[in-house]
Design a binder for these strands. Structure first.
Length: 277
DNA sequence: AACCAGGCGCATA
DNA sequence: TATGCGCATGGT
């Protein structure tokens, strides 16, 4: 991945597998917004503006922040080109990749991923985004302008159900509180999950009320670097039933999370399935 | 106006 | 182990 530094920005030169809209609006992160081609978002206490230009992807940031945050966040050290070549042995994955090449798995903050996917349960994406936006605006640290950090587990842990009511998250409020409390006390070592086996990390996460198999897998995949985690929501279950009755093909071994994201996005957005809505 | 949404906890068998 | 139901809210 070649990088060029300018006075106010960093250019990722002609990446083969990196699309901002696909990465930032494929249902893995909920806080990015696009205006006039500029993608705007907040990660850890840093704001980023980025856009696609002739010659690559431009990040308006310093080399220092690129190296310490954005390179990792966008998973730029991983060779997706090679993985996708392997995936194309499978006819269905090949179609998904041909239509939506450019998705990468984001390395989000584990607490934000946990909290976001607790909110996601039995919910739809537009409403998930709204709840998370209100959560950040109400309880997150202001970062100037219109930006807010994602509120820390310590901050949420001090709140009551009544405090959370304005989020309009419904029955999920009690789950958000339980998660914040278990993380804040250290009962669940959220920042340690990255270095645990995926099995151990799963068993840690499901100690939290409102965290079952699906939310745990999402947290592991999007927040803990466990690239083989495989969340099965209604769309992925649909695909598995329709196309993979005998399980995923061997070419996805070790990186099932990437396969999951391509299949999920394909099944939801491809014209091939539009008659099924 | 129903049906559904990136599910989960709980009761029951 | 395996179903089935209720849950808060609002998008489509």
């Amino acid at each position: 991945m070649k990088v060029k530094q300018f006075c106010d920005s960093i250019l990722i030169e002609n990446p083969k597998v990196f699309s901002l809209p696909l990465c930032l609006d494929c249902g893995q992160a909920f806080r990015w917004e696009q205006n006039n081609g500029i993608w705007h978002g907040v990660v850890k206490n840093k704001v980023l503006n980025a856009k696609e230009v002739d010659g690559g992807v431009l990040f308006y940031t310093t080399l220092e922040d690129y190296n310490s945050i954005w390179h990792d966040y966008f998973d730029l050290a991983r060779d997706y080109e090679k993985t996708l070549v392997d995936f194309k042995e499978d006819e269905k994955l090949k179609q998904a990749i041909n239509e939506f090449c450019g998705i990468r798995i984001l390395n989000q903050d584990p607490w934000e991923a946990l909290c976001s996917f607790i909110i996601s349960q039995n919910n739809n994406i537009p409403r998930i985004k709204g709840i998370i936006k209100r959560l950040c605006e109400t309880f997150g640290e202001p970062l100037g302008e219109e930006d807010f950090a994602f509120p820390s587990p310590q901050t949420i842990a001090k709140l009551s159900l009544d405090d959370l009511a304005p989020l309009r998250a419904g029955f999920r409020n009690k789950y958000i509180l339980d998660a914040a409390q278990k993380v804040a006390t250290g009962e669940v070592d959220i920042y340690g999950l990255k270095n645990m086996s995926i099995e151990t990390a799963r068993s840690e996460l499901i100690k939290i009320k409102g965290v079952g198999e699906k939310v745990a897998e999402c947290t592991l995949l999007y927040g803990c670097g466990h690239i083989n985690a495989f969340p099965k929501d209604v769309w992925v279950k649909r695909i598995m039933q329709e196309m993979y009755q005998d399980g995923l093909p061997k070419c996805t071994d070790g990186v099932k999370g990437i396969a999951q994201q391509y299949l999920f996005h394909w099944r939801r957005n491809s014209k091939l399935f539009e008659n099924e809505k």
